[in-house]
Simulated assay, not measured.
Amino acid sequence: MNSSIKNILAVILGWVGGSTINMALIQAGHAIYPIPNIDSNNMEALSEVMPTLGINYFIFPFLAHAIGTLVGAFIAYSIAAANKMKFAYTIGILFLIGGILVNFMITGPIWFTIADLLLAYIPMAWLGGTLAQKITKK
């Protein structure tokens, strides 16, 4: 397969795979820790209630962002033709951009925003790429 096509597929499949994990964990979090009287699809209502929530409501969003990024970076690294770690980091940057946007749309506690933006994206992209490197040994 053409290396350009492999690299494009690496980004697309890494993004789709990571996003799928992300959304599954977000949905699991809503099922385990439902926010009373709030439609979880209503961004304005979520933004209003976020500062009042306990730490348990932030576990799944953080895990969703971190594990989604890790899986996406792993997939991207595994598929990319060359400069594989660059593609793992590309996924991390895409997810970081999404994380920044979500943190502006749904304002949560500052501690969560800082932890999320500093720990869930670029470090997890590095870890996903590193794990893929060790497993594939390429």
Rank of each mutant, 00 (worst) to 15 (best):
W126S: 11
S78R: 04
W126F: 12
K138Q: 14
A73N: 09
A73E: 00
T52A: 15
E44W: 00
W126Q: 09
V16G: 07
G18T: 05
F87L: 08
L53S: 12
Q133N: 14
P36Y: 08
F62S: 05
A120L: 09
W111H: 02
E48R: 15
D116A: 13
A81E: 15
I21K: 09
L119E: 07
A132R: 10
L118C: 09
G54N: 03
T136Q: 14
G129P: 03
F62Q: 04
L46G: 00
N37M: 10
Y33A: 05
V11Q: 05
G17A: 09
G129N: 04
T107Y: 12
I93D: 00
I5L: 14
L25H: 08
P123L: 08
S47P: 09
I135T: 14
L96W: 12
G108K: 08
G18V: 00
L25I: 15
K138C: 07
I21D: 00
G92T: 05
A73K: 04
S40V: 05
A45D: 10
L94T: 02
A73M: 02
G128D: 07
A64T: 05
A115N: 08
N7Q: 06
A76H: 08
M1E: 11
G68Y: 02
Q27V: 04
Y89M: 12
N41Y: 11
N42K: 08
T136F: 07
I93N: 01
T113A: 13
P51A: 01
T130Q: 14
P34R: 10
L53I: 14
D39Y: 01
V16D: 11
L46N: 10
F60S: 00
P61E: 12
W111K: 01
H65P: 02
G72Y: 07
M124P: 07
F62V: 08
N37Q: 10
I67G: 11
T52L: 14
K137D: 15
I59G: 09
G129Q: 01
A28N: 01
E44I: 13
I79N: 01
G17M: 04
E44A: 13
L131W: 08
T113M: 15
F58Y: 15
S78G: 12
P36M: 04
A45F: 07
I93S: 06
F60L: 11
G98W: 03
I26R: 03
K138R: 12
I67D: 07
I110S: 01
L117W: 05
L94G: 04
L118V: 15
G99E: 03
S19I: 02
G92E: 00
G14I: 03
A81G: 07
F112G: 07
V71G: 06
S40D: 15
T52S: 15
A81P: 06
I5R: 14
Y89Q: 00
A76G: 09
T52M: 13
M43P: 01
I32K: 10
L127S: 03
A120W: 04
I55H: 01
I12K: 11
L25Q: 06
P61V: 10
A76S: 14
P36T: 06
P123Q: 06
V102G: 03
G128V: 01
A64S: 14
A24L: 15
G72W: 06
G99N: 07
I100D: 08
N56Q: 13
